[in-house]
Design a protein around this nucleic acid. Sequence first.
RNA 1: GCGCCCAUAGCUCAAUGGAUAGAGCGUAAGCCUCCGGAGCUUAAAAUAGAGGUUCGAUUCCUCUUGGGCGCACCA
Length: 572
Amino acid sequence: MLSQKLQAEVAKAAHKHYQFKAEEVEVEPTRELSHGDLTTNVALKIASKWGVPVRQAAETITDELKQSRLVNTVCSRMEIAGPGFINFWIKPTVFLKQLPELIKSQKRNIYKGQKVLVEFSSPNIAKPMHVGHIRSTIIGAALANIYQALGANVYRLNHLGDWGTQFGKLIAAYKRWGKREQVKKAPIEEMLKLYVKFHEEMKTEPELETEGQREFLKLEQGNRQNKALWNWFKHESLMEFEVLYKRLGVKFSHVTGESYYEPMLKGVVAELLRRKFATKNSDGSVVVHLEAESLPPCLVQKSDGGSLYATRDLAAIRYRVKKFKPNKILYVVGNEQALHFDQVFSIAKLAGYASSTELRHIKYGLILGEDKQKLATREGRIIPLADVLNKAHELAYKIVQNKNPSLPSKVKERIAEAVGVGSVKYNDLSQNRHTDITFNWQKMLELEGNSAPYLQYTYVRLKSVLKKAGGKRHPVMSVKSLASVGEQDLIVLRTLMRYPEFLRRAAEDCGPHLLAAYLYELANQVNIFYHVAPVIKAESTLRIFRLSLISIAAEVIKEGLNILGITTVEQM
RNA sequence: GCGCCCAUAGCUCAAUGGAUAGAGCGUAAGCCUCCGGAGCUUAAAAUAGAGGUUCGAUUCCUCUUGGGCGCACCA
């Protein structure tokens, strides 16, 4: 009785930590190893569940574990490593053989059959993409890839900021000062100038504020001239964005701005009023009170009848749930909009718009200027994304030129782009998304240490070893007996086993940095590995074992990097 | 005033409630007759403060201090 329960617990822990099913593991001749390969703290987990006194738990459980079929199957031996900690000695050849298939099957089942919408990037048109947008774009793209890798059906949505009073302001500014030819020449740059100028003039001429609102109202009511201007602004912006997206390797399945939901807005407000969730003020504005959720009230219609940010997001939720029937919608949007999403999600819940869909705001910290102040578009304090990518590319090119001058310049360009763009992305993806990031050129352009090039370089070296060993492919082979597997072989093996676990955690926590940290750890262990363990010169079975190990490691690094949106190269 | 996020080494960041808190940069000292030195060794160096829960807290709870971001006609 007890031992069955225990076995189940151990199997669960083994599955959770090492992602394999105990029953699937084949029995092979036991071989004693000098270092523990599987360490877990099952004992305490069990003790706390069953109320066994902790200090005795490890010993009690050891007796039970000793009779467990799992332990006899998988482990060659086990011992207590400390209060509540048990080390299991695992047979390495058992795992290596099954590893690729194991990884594949574990991954694709985790979110199989689920539909996930990821809304990310979502830049405002008529404004340049700056370093601030990189977080949503890169984190969002990585999350979408992670869910896809785990078997989900993923939709990538770019919810463009193409509607709202700001366009009234832009139209007003263009009507006052704009010149067609100049906008044609450098669209976003010129539009930004107009927008900034408008805000500057507003300081001395406050009436401009209402002028902007008036122009937006006209746009919303279908004024032909304003609509034409708006369409033109949007078109020019998208053309410029497309260049950057291509460079970043980011693709969307749906690019529909806020304006897309414009025809549905009146219906949403009317419905909220009819069902008494919202109340109309005497000035004509409509508000939803959320005291019950201990949130401040949320305005969904302006007194002039115009719509608001919240109105559009509500319409979007209703529309998306109806159309896609997703399990989750992830909104990759900055921290500063937390209240907005709390309000919108609460209203959606009240009104039953998303009864069986999880709505989740994936918030991330701001990118602050080097003076720790917010980078604001209005004051023109921005660092264009293209500048950052160009600088990174340049720097990477210099290094390739230095390391490998004989490569054709076309190849060097390609390497520089992969390394440059990759390191900018990795810089962002390798850290927790919650904290604010202080922008730092040096850090952004880091090409050594914990950085994308480190991982890319590790991959190149692994491939190089495989190439030197002869033969194009190195299928993983079963090795019946090994004379001298080293400590580092086992560490790499164990690290490889944990790949699906980190993918899963990255998805659960919506934290791509968990995957990045894993890849770094793997690369680090691999670097130590081929430093201490000869591969090509190893004797026959060990050579096969190590080539197999390297081959799997290379594939995992490549796949992991691609999931993060970082491209690998074959030489650098 | 209220709410949300954050505080870890000199700097930038890690750490599913678990074992001796890990990396990178910088600093100091090493390693290419050995599969690519964008690499590998070694050293010094940290949990903001006070309580609480727990066998065990960087992690969870409360308060304090210090920073950031929000709080109805911007998005």
